[in-house]
Amino acid sequence: MNDYIKQLTALLGQLSDEERGEVVDFYSEYLQDGGFVRFSDCVAELGTPRQLARKVLADYSIKTLENPSRSDSRTQRSKSDVQTIWIIVLALLSTPVTIPLAVGVAAMFVVAIAVTFALIVSVIAIFVSIIAGGLGSFILGISMLFSHFWVGLFYFGIGLAVVGALLMLTPIFKWSIDGLIHGITLFSKWIYSKISSKNRAQRKDDQK
């Protein structure tokens, strides 16, 4: 049991001293009260130290997601989303890939991330191209004002209208990018919940 706790402590290095102390106290008390003495008993109860540490760390990051009241703006949510995605990606990478299923799930996850990234890039591309089109028309309009006044004025007006409309639509672009990032975060959380190994209570429950 002492080895188990020692390994767990070492794996929780990124938490603050106080947080790590509380986690370690909780689980060492838990193992003592439950009478789990041998290392293998502890693993049967809580999973390997690495699995447990991964869950603790993931819970720490997912919890900030579940309390939206603490992050005031969408930008903050996006930032913590990105952080959560990274932690879960790392957790996935540290999973032993002995199970083919895990490889499949990981592949699906990578594909989902790639698709989301592509969507984000295309949203940005659309935004940029509309701006370019609007500005182009605007400049063309000005340069034609002197040769063909009415045609020039027409392009001038179109340019202004396009840029104006785009500025009004900006929140939609920002919103869709935020939404995509949030979507992939929910997806990662879902995947994480699928592959994180089941513990004693859940196994017992499955047998019922």
Binding site: V23, D59, A201, Q202, K204, D205
Partner: peptide
């Protein structure tokens, strides 16, 4: 209910 130990601590 079925909850894991790693759920109880948080």
């Amino acid at each position: 209910i079925s909850v894991s130990e790693s759920t109880m601590y948080p």
